[in-house]
């Protein structure tokens, strides 16, 4: 008896899987299947109680449900919406959140230290040095922010987020060195020269990433 029961369960599940084949996963789909499963099972049991055998009760129960295509279509749309913004794994979310927090703290730390030092000794050249913390801070924040994504934009792939963060870091680092050299030497030429190297590298990297942005995404959904 128990065995026959689980065989029927399997049959209903298989039918529902086939019915919703190709529909994107979603919590709603999962619940809809469970709802249909329970109700179908009860209906089959009713038919069996009227003296029908199992296989014809199964067939009859399914036929008598009517045309489920608009329900399937409805859930297909839900599945597509969910697919567009894949949920991050708990680990990735934790990494992204940590990146955002550490990034913000480091940026602030850099800013506060600069302010502190600038009051301690009046030489700007030395007090600006901790700005490097802010450079790394913004870079780490960029990484976390891109990895996490927003409600309008799905989270980025890890490698891509790292590269974006690097390009942001390079551009800021170029500004940082330029300011630092200028403050120390008081000359413009060497500061521009040193800035150029990192700035160009940063911009180059950013442009590459920007131009290879997977725009097909819009079309494929």
């Amino acid at each position: 008896m128990k065995k026959a029961q689980s065989q029927l369960d399997h049959k209903i599940k298989k039918y529902l899987d086939q019915l919703f084949a190709g529909v994107g996963e979603s919590q709603e789909l999962h619940e809809q299947k469970e709802e249909l499963f329970t109700n179908l099972k009860e209906k089959i049991a009713d038919y069996q109680a009227q003296g029908m055998d199992e296989s014809s009760s199964f067939k009859e129960a399914i036929i008598s449900m009517g045309d489920l295509s608009s329900l399937v279509e409805d859930l297909r749309k839900v599945g597509e919406k969910t697919k567009q913004f894949p949920t991050l794994s708990p680990t990735a979310t934790r990494i992204a959140n940590a990146g955002i927090i550490i990034g913000v703290l480091m940026t602030l730390f850099g800013g506060f230290t600069i302010a502190l030092l600038s009051f301690k000794d009046l030489k700007w050249g030395e007090s600006f040095a901790p700005g490097i913390f802010s450079v790394f801070g913004v870079s780490i924040f960029t990484y976390g922010f891109l990895l996490k994504g927003t409600s309008k934009r799905p989270g980025m792939k890890q490698m891509r987020a790292i590269l974006y963060a690097t390009s942001a870091g390079l551009i800021l680092f170029s500004l940082y060195t330029a300011i630092l050299i200028n403050l120390k030497t008081g000359e413009m030429a060497p500061s521009i020269a040193s800035m150029m190297v990192f700035f160009l590298a940063g911009i180059g990297l950013w442009l590459t990433l920007f131009l290879t942005e997977p725009n097909q995404r819009k079309n494929s959904y």
Binding site: E35, L36, T38, N39, M65, G66, L71, D74
Partner: peptide
């Protein structure tokens, strides 16, 4: 009430004269 029971109640309420398909119900 739940799906299949609602279906049966509608059928009973109509005096077995009208069957509202479950597909229509779920939508």
């Amino acid at each position: 009430s739940y799906g299949y029971e609602i279906y049966k109640k509608i059928l009973a309420l109509s005096g077995n004269q009208y069957e509202l398909k479950e597909a229509t119900l779920y939508t």
